[in-house]
């Protein structure tokens, strides 16, 4: 079997995003996420893709016509550590039972049936992308029959997270084998959030593939590109020697999800980088 060369990644264009929340709903439907009475209880609800509202109204310079709002779709950023060829996401090294691991495609997997619910990974995650199942989901009436059969319903007391809809990839691989395609690198797929986006703001593809819309070297050169709470990116071009020095002493998350925005205030909010 051919070696996997894919490295799945995502680019979210916040200039195109209207904040409609279709990605959030599509994700919850696709991954059988439980519905509770009070889903506004943020630490206890279960959601893989969170829509964060950010405004610049705390900024003293932003007066009435300049106050702006943006919505950031935040899912698991699929961190890879400093060296993408030898990935070290922050959540994987803390798991005592290897319930979370990095696949050949760079996607960080999470197996709820192996999870013991210690929640170390939730603490280690820099993006709060992992959620804990506090209660067993209850479904009203015949709602359970409408669940996605490809995804198992996680039990109470386990950790769950976004895995870039890896079950869709498995399904596409089966389809390819049925057509006689045995090369694993020939199979592509689209996660539920990317296919649900009405403005095509969420692009999904292979970061290593030059023909894909999310080819990583191209995205890194884009002046609009910014990564969530990843201030070290600014040093990569501004001060390469300092960048080298810092990456030697510390493992940075190096996420595979890029955000594109042309608004400076939003860039500052997302990257967490201060010019001071």
């Amino acid at each position: 079997m051919a070696k996997m060369t894919r490295r799945w990644g995502m680019v979210i264009d916040l200039d195109k995003c209207t904040g409609c929340g279709a990605c959030n709903i599509a994700c919850a439907q696709e991954n059988n996420l439980p519905i509770f009475k009070d889903d506004s209880d943020v630490p206890k609800r279960v959601t893989f893709l969170d829509l964060i509202e950010v405004t610049n109204d705390k900024d003293p310079k932003a007066q009435y016509p300049d106050v702006k709002v943006a919505y950031i779709p935040k899912m698991c950023q699929q961190c890879s550590g400093n060296d993408p060829n030898n990935p070290h996401p922050p959540c994987v090294s803390v798991c005592p039972v290897v319930a979370t691991d990095v696949g050949e495609d760079g996607v960080v997997s999470q197996i709820w049936s192996r999870c013991i619910g210690c929640r170390y990974c939730q603490v280690a995650c820099p993006y709060e992308a992992r959620v804990f199942h506090w209660w067993k989901p209850r479904y009203e009436g015949s709602f359970k029959e409408s669940l996605n059969p490809d995804v198992s319903i996680a039990s109470r007391g386990t950790m769950v997270k976004c895995t870039f809809c890896s079950h869709i990839w498995k399904r596409e691989r089966d389809k390819a084998i049925a057509q006689g395609i045995t090369d694993i690198n020939a199979v592509t797929y689209t996660p539920a959030c990317a296919s649900a986006c009405p403005t095509n703001a969420i692009l999904f593809g292979d970061l290593n593939d030059p023909s894909s819309p999310v080819y990583e070297p191209k995205i890194q050169k884009d002046p609009r590109a910014v990564r969530l709470v990843h201030s070290i990116d600014e040093l990569r071009t501004k001060d390469p020697s300092e960048y080298e020095k810092r990456t030697k002493i510390k493992e940075y998350p190096n996420p595979k999800v890029y955000y594109l925005t042309s608004q400076q205030w939003l860039r500052d909010k997302i990257s967490g980088f201060k010019n001071s």
Binding site: M1, S109, I111, S166
Partner: peptide, 12 residues
């Protein structure tokens, strides 16, 4: 059969 034994191959 030389298929990977990683958890994620069968479990999600």
């Amino acid at each position: 059969l030389k298929i990977s034994n990683a958890c994620t191959v069968c479990h999600d």
